[in-house]
Computed example of a mutant assay.
Amino acid sequence: MPKDWYEWHDLYNTEPKLQQRLEIVREYIAYSLNASPDGAIRIVSVCAGDGRDLLGTLQNHPRAKDVSARLVEINSNLVERGRATIESLGLAKQIEFINGDATLATNYVGAVPADIAIACGVLGHVAEKIELNRLINNLSFLSKKGAFFIWTRGHSDSISYSDNVRKILSASGFEEVNFKLTATGNMAVGIHRYLGENLPQPKEQQLFVFSGIPSKAR
């Protein structure tokens, strides 16, 4: 069992479900970049890990130079690895990695509202339904009208947890663009578009409570 999230990310080297999930997430990020209007594209990533989903997409994407992004991650080792990747891609002037608590609204001020919001590996670690609702409601702070929201959710014990996520998003002003399961069948990836209005102030300082431990992918 990984002792921390830095070790957990090494599972991408061996776990097919994570590899397949990452491939779909990158596909949806690329779609969002392609579908964005000409000009600047603002991106935020919640609990960003080492940023491999976004950074791996930008590596060969023709609109990489249009992107400004803020990635928020509390694990300093993952942030260090992500910053090294940003330097290697020549994107240091466009992308910032914040080593901080992704649940706090202050870590996004100045980078929102975004054109693309990413929350991968997050929703399965928001333990209670009330917390999931709170996080999704607070996406109106992170997202401008028309923004894309890319998310993941694991399935286990034959329970399709993503069904509940899709219902809450639909009820909260998000239109589904696409949805896929990995070939392993136990990881879901969705992309929605926010149809509501941006709220310049979050409903509360803490956007959600992250209760996960690095024992399993969710």
Rank of each mutant, 00 (worst) to 15 (best):
K3I: 14
E7G: 01
E7S: 08
H9A: 01
D10S: 14
D10L: 14
D10V: 07
N13A: 15
Q19K: 15
E23T: 14
E23H: 14
V25P: 11
Y28W: 09
I29R: 01
S32D: 08
N34W: 07
P37F: 02
P37D: 04
G39A: 04
G39W: 10
A40P: 12
I43W: 11
S45Y: 09
D53N: 09
L55R: 06
S68N: 12
A69E: 09
V72Q: 06
E73Y: 03
I74K: 11
L91T: 02
Q94T: 04
I95P: 05
F97Y: 11
I98V: 14
I98G: 00
A102Q: 02
A102K: 01
T103N: 04
Y108S: 00
G110W: 06
V112Y: 07
I116H: 06
C120S: 15
G124M: 05
G124A: 06
G124C: 02
G124I: 07
V126D: 03
A127K: 15
E128R: 13
E128K: 13
K129M: 12
K129W: 11
F148T: 04
T152A: 04
D157M: 12
R166D: 14
I168M: 09
L169W: 02
F174T: 05
V177Q: 08
N178P: 00
N178D: 14
F179R: 00
K180P: 01
L181D: 05
N186T: 13
M187A: 15
M187V: 15
M187L: 10
E197T: 14
N198W: 12
P202G: 07
P202I: 10
Q205F: 08
Q205T: 14
F210E: 01
I213S: 13
P214I: 06
A217Y: 11
A217F: 13
A217R: 01
R218E: 02
